[in-house]
């Protein structure tokens, strides 16, 4: 009794991923970052767009910025300038693989082998969550009602993607 359409998993082009953390004078630092990035940093558990950048809250006082590869170095420099001595930034582009899952049944898919309530109404576009699915650490960023980005370390990705492909195939069969 699952209402679904065909689920698709799309591995998108790689971008530049920058992780940064604020450790002191947070208010002023957040202001500087907002100016540098063109928008306020997302709150706890949220994500947002800023032009061609995707901003994702990661951990307390820690964010992830996804930038087009071509602008990566410039964005990193801008963030480092805004952080000044109140925080640090690192390029972690190779540390995570992003995959986009499309189809309205992404919520169901993500409950398979997991412990997180991906079916909650409150987990909508602009929400992020980190959890563990099929033993793999996963960070989720809801793009729209029918799209979600999942970030996972590349070493776990082959197993996890295979797991999702199998689960999606089952869901698609059940939906028919």
């Amino acid at each position: 009794m699952i209402d679904t359409q065909m689920l698709k998993r799309v591995t998108p082009e790689t971008g530049r991923l920058i992780r940064f953390e604020i450790w002191s004078d947070a208010d002023a630092c957040l202001d500087r970052l907002a100016k540098a990035l063109g928008t306020e940093l997302p709150q706890t558990g949220k994500s947002a767009n800023a032009g061609d950048l995707r901003l994702v809250w990661l951990e307390p006082m820690t964010w992830l910025v996804r930038a087009p590869e071509a602008r990566g170095a410039a964005v990193l420099a801008r963030i480092e300038e805004a952080l000044a001595s109140d925080g640090g930034a690192c390029d972690i582009s190779g540390a995570l693989v992003r995959t986009r899952i499309t189809g309205p049944a992404w919520r169901t898919l993500l409950t398979i082998g997991g412990v997180f309530d991906a079916e909650a109404d409150t987990f909508g576009p602009g929400c992020m969550a980190a959890t563990v699915i099929a033993h793999a650490p996963v960070r989720l960023d809801v793009i729209s009602k029918t799209e979600i980005d999942a970030y996972t370390p590349p070493s776990y990705a082959p197993d996890l993607f295979e797991f999702w492909d199998h689960a999606a195939a089952r869901l698609n069969l059940q939906a028919r």
Binding site: W23, C90, I92, A95
Partner: peptide
């Protein structure tokens, strides 16, 4: 401490 520690095991 004013320091950030990032796990970059899989970045590199």
């Amino acid at each position: 401490l004013k320091v950030t520690v990032a796990n970059v095991q899989e970045h590199w």
